[in-house]
């Protein structure tokens, strides 16, 4: 009975992992394929990597995506932090419920709707005041900020819920004026949330295809838009090479983050031991 169950669990586990990782393995494998036809093995080669690195179109799309992601993450973090602070620290003000609802609405709004409505907004604005004159990096960035800031606001709000208001009150009691307290106490304690929010906004922007394709214009292809349009013309091996590169970068990122977390945890444990050792010695 026990043996059978563990066999079942083991096969379920293998099946689950296989489902997740075999496609990636296949993709990586075929990225080293010499043949121009993706599913036909034509011998080992790094040919498609060379093609990829020499493709100006690809570099332009990557640069655009990174630019948009960076600006988006920075602005969304700023605005999202302000919204989160207002929601968790400003107490009750008129229209608070409405504000809370409207800040978090983009989280549940289908992307197609968001994209379409933003496109309509930009067209109307362009007709009325002549701005934006053309759709491209600016419009995509604005569109990304609108939904990214909702995520940041939620993260900041939940972090602030875990930070006792006593700390801010104590700082005020010790002579800190409210803005000073924000700088001295609240912001340092918010740093982990702000960093997480920034990274999330960055990733969301880098990842977005639907909204970007609504509000992008001619000649402003982000990386997801480029990949998608290439795929529509049929599978091509250089896309495999690109995907492999992305998998590599993400894996390195995850490993580094995990290692840093582990190290921090060990450091904390050591410090906690130090504290208890001290108080026992006293």
């Amino acid at each position: 009975m026990r043996g059978k169950r563990s066999l079942f669990l083991l096969s379920a586990l293998s099946f689950g992992f296989a489902f997740l990782y075999v496609p990636m393995a296949v993709l990586i494998f075929y990225s080293f394929n010499y043949s121009k036809l993706v599913p036909v093995w034509g011998g080992f080669s790094t040919r498609w990597y060379r093609v990829l690195f020499e493709s100006e179109e690809m570099w332009a799309a990557l640069t655009l995506s990174l630019k948009i992601a960076t600006v988006n993450a920075t602005v969304a973090t700023l605005l999202g932090a302000l919204a989160g602070l207002t929601l968790s620290r400003a107490g009750h003000f008129k229209g608070r419920t409405l504000f809370a609802g409207m800040v978090s609405a983009p989280l549940v709004m289908p992307e197609v709707i968001t994209g379409l409505s933003l496109l309509l907004l930009f067209i109307t604005l362009s007709n009325l005041i002549g701005w934006p004159s053309e759709r491209g990096m600016t419009t995509i960035t604005i569109a990304h900020i609108t939904f990214s800031l909702a995520y940041v606001a939620v993260i900041v709000q939940s972090r602030l819920a875990g930070v006792s208001q006593d700390l801010e009150e104590a700082a005020q009691d010790l002579g800190g004026k409210p803005f000073r307290v924000l700088i001295d106490i609240t912001l340092p304690l918010l740093m982990p949330a702000l960093a997480a929010g920034w990274l999330l906004a960055f990733t969301l922007s880098l990842d977005d295809l639907v909204i970007a394709s609504f509000v992008s214009g001619p000649g402003s292809n982000t990386l997801p838009i480029l990949i998608y349009s290439r795929i529509r013309l049929g599978l091509r091996p250089d896309i495999n090479a690109l995907a492999t590169m992305i998998i590599l970068v993400v894996s390195i990122g995850v490993f580094v983050a995990g290692w840093l977390l582990l190290r921090q945890q060990r450091l904390r444990d050591q410090e906690a031991q130090l504290a208890t050792a001290d108080s026992n010695g006293k």
């Binding site: 006792s164 006593d166 104590a170 700082a171 009691d173 010790l174 106490i185 340092p188 304690l189």
Partner: peptide, 12 residues
């Protein structure tokens, strides 16, 4: 000045 029940020491 006040001493809080939670002590409210600044953790950073």
């Amino acid at each position: 000045n006040m001493m809080f029940q939670s002590y409210a020491l600044f953790p950073h």
